[in-house]
Amino acid sequence: MATDTATDVFEAHRSVLTGVAYRMLGRVADAEDVVQETWLRWSGTDREQVRDPRAFLMRVTTRLAIDRLRQITSRRESYVGPWLPEPMATDLGRTTPDAAERALLAETVSLAVLVVLESLSPLERAVFVLREAFGFPYGEIAETLDRSEAAVRQLSGRARRHVEERKPRFEVDPRQRQELTEKFLAASTSGDIEQLLALLAPDARLVGDSGGKAKAPLRVLETADKVGRFLLGVAQRPIEEPELVITEINGGPGLVIFSRGVPDAVMSLDVADGRVQSVYIVHNPDKLAAFAR
């Protein structure tokens, strides 16, 4: 197989490999490292002996992601304050025009669901991602993980129940989420506390991730009043040459805050029943590099 052909085959599967690795690891940099290692193994393999390149690439990526996940778990145990996945700019509306497929991908890549996935074992997380996000058949997942199909079905059922019990509800209509995000931004920046509280669910919560490298709550804030007043305080914080950009983040509308052209924070919302249920703010500069201009 020629080098160009090997590259073409790999590039044809890169987006899916990256999607699996990111959902497994919650960090863009870790996902890219895993995909790069998969490329190195693919380029060094006797590809004439590979009957199914897609299965080969998926198997390598998934196993590397499981190994990386086991390595980084201890890092997160010593993390300062709440930990959130690294936010990622997405454009599911363009890449997946089918509404049902878009809703599924958006849900499985949301910050809220990625946080829930953190509580799964590496194998459960791999099965959940391959089955629920990408629809791989049980038999193929079993070959990927070198497990029996019965064991994979058991892992899948356990992971699905765990996620369903803990994941937040989502507003499935992208336009409604977009409109509410815009109203939420307007209320926050204008200092209209009454309007802001009207947009927040009574039991709304805010999770801020700074890693100890920026100002953010060291605990999860709960109740609309606490969340609203914190956000108004953030809006009044002086920022040099501020710029606010609404864009799709992790499958839903989000906000990127720039200071002098450098990403300062990313905010994402969970929306259901016409109100904001959860606010996620990533203020750790190490997790914002992907949004640099």
Rank of each mutant, 00 (worst) to 15 (best):
S15R: 14
L17H: 03
G19D: 11
G19P: 04
A21F: 00
A21Y: 03
R23W: 06
M24D: 12
M24W: 02
L25Q: 04
G26Q: 01
V28A: 13
A31H: 02
A31W: 01
E32H: 03
V34N: 10
V34K: 02
V35C: 09
Q36T: 15
Q36F: 06
E37F: 08
E37D: 15
T38I: 11
W39C: 00
W42F: 11
S43T: 08
S43Q: 08
S43W: 10
S43N: 10
G44W: 00
G44I: 05
T45N: 06
T45P: 12
D46W: 00
D46M: 08
R47L: 08
R47D: 02
Q49T: 15
Q49P: 09
V50G: 02
P53S: 13
P53D: 05
R54H: 14
A55R: 10
F56D: 00
L57W: 00
M58W: 07
M58K: 09
R59V: 00
R63K: 13
L64W: 09
L64Q: 13
L64P: 02
A65R: 02
A65G: 08
A65T: 12
L69N: 08
R70F: 04
R70G: 13
R70H: 12
Q71R: 15
I72L: 14
T73N: 11
T73F: 04
S74M: 07
S74E: 11
R75S: 12
R76N: 00
E77M: 03
E77D: 10
E77A: 13
S78W: 11
S78V: 09
S78Y: 07
Y79I: 01
Y79K: 08
G81C: 03
G81S: 11
G81F: 06
P82D: 03
W83C: 04
W83L: 06
W83T: 06
P85D: 05
P85M: 03
P87R: 10
P87E: 04
P87C: 04
M88S: 11
T90F: 02
D91V: 05
L92W: 14
L92I: 14
G93F: 01
G93L: 08
G93M: 11
T96C: 05
P97L: 15
P97Y: 11
D98V: 08
D98W: 11
D98N: 12
A100P: 00
